[in-house]
Design a protein around this nucleic acid. Structure first.
Lengths: 213, 213
DNA sequence: CGTCCCTTTTACCAGACGGTCAAATATAAC
DNA sequence: GTTATATTTGACCGTCTGGTAAAAGGGACG
């Protein structure tokens, strides 16, 4: 395996199989709930063979988390300071929702890690994540102070995007149980969220009797 | 233990200790991640002694879940069809947020169970939960059709309350990492959520140029 | 004091789990 | 085909885990 010319075809294939299987198992059972035997079976390999590619169960989990945060933050990263504020933000919401819809296992893996106190991600959260969020929040704040978006706390606004989009992936069984099998959860969610954030962010003309009965 | 006169004082005390310890351990480690030894140690009892009160690890977990859903739905149940719609709904949001703030372990326990596909709660979700939600959604829908709340899908509106309030409990480490230690997460969250839902729900006068540049 | 029942502990088990090791097998290079 | 290396396997180990059995405390009541 110590090789000058990078990974073999077989290595690429099997590492991929293992990561895929690991994503399946870790996202449904959590780190402690997952077993090497389970991952090995899901990958179609023997347990020692899995350990030949990843030295330990934790190594597989870490490898998954490493790529995860980056992908997960792409929609926020893509928020363009030069664009039209409202459409830019709604685009962010849509991209985040698409991510949740197309990669629910990744969403649940991430959720499980955070839920348990992020033992392996604390650094990334306080580092890369916080930096990116702070930077984008400054952009949003500028949009607000220039009167192009209704004012509110940018950080909590971002939290609300995370919460609302990931809810549909992380708590899918609950959403499905309440809505029933016929309704198209994801289509409804997109319509609802876009309208929601439109109402939250569109500037309205000040009207002294808006809140009177 | 088969007794005519209900549980002994000592039974009440120890069952309480075990449930409290179980809540601690299950909410941070999940069902599979939790161990009887861990629960026993947290409760200050020996493992067989724990099993004397609850026949199995799963029995402790079930006992916790059984009481959980009811408490968790109280704020929604308390929504009064006769009240003033907007304040009634905002009151619901506040009560739900207080619950998340004061009982984060319960929130995480619930989140973990749903995240893993709700193997022990599927019935409750499709039964009691769905019934209550459907009923309250009818109330909200009536408020909307009578023009006292801005129209939107009541079910997704309820989801958004769940998502936004529980986010602050379930992903507390992430919120804390991004906001830093100084800011008062819960106070800010309340202000932000109340304003958020106000904007979403307050009827605005129709204005043909609201969305024009 | 003795008896009954509730409670607690000590010792233990069978299976699961993460991981190791050496041998066997496949693959590529010459 | 031979050799060197990469891959795969079966057997195994120490530990952890949920759960059991039986016997030892302990308190209320006669």
């Amino acid at each position: 395996m110590a090789n000058d010319e990078g990974p073999t075809r077989i290595q690429v294939k099997n590492r991929g199989l293992i990561l895929e299987a690991g994503l399946d198992v870790f996202s449904t059972d959590g780190f402690r709930g997952a077993t090497l035997d389970g991952i090995a079976k899901a990958a179609g390999l023997s347990k020692p063979n899995v350990l030949y590619y990843f030295g330990s169960k934790e190594a597989i989990y870490r490898a998954l988390l490493d790529t995860l945060l980056d992908t997960w933050l792409d929609p926020l990263r893509a928020l363009d300071p030069e664009g039209e504020p409202l459409e830019e933000f709604l685009g962010y919401v849509r991209r985040k929702l698409v991510l949740a819809r197309d990669f629910p296992r990744e969403s649940r893996l991430f959720a499980g890690e955070i839920l348990r106190g992020a033992p392996l991600m604390a650094d990334a959260l306080a580092g890369d994540l916080r930096q990116l969020v702070d930077a984008r929040c400054e952009v949003i704040r500028a949009w607000m102070t220039s009167g192009r978006l209704a004012p509110s706390d940018p950080h909590h606004l971002v939290f609300s995007v995370w919460a609302l989009t990931q809810h549909y992936a992380d708590f899918e069984v609950q959403v499905a149980a309440v809505l029933g099998p016929e309704r198209d959860r994801w289509a409804e969610a997109e319509a609802h969220l876009v309208e929601h954030f439109r109402r939250v962010l569109v500037m309205r003309r000040v009207s002294h009797n808006d809140r009177s009965p």
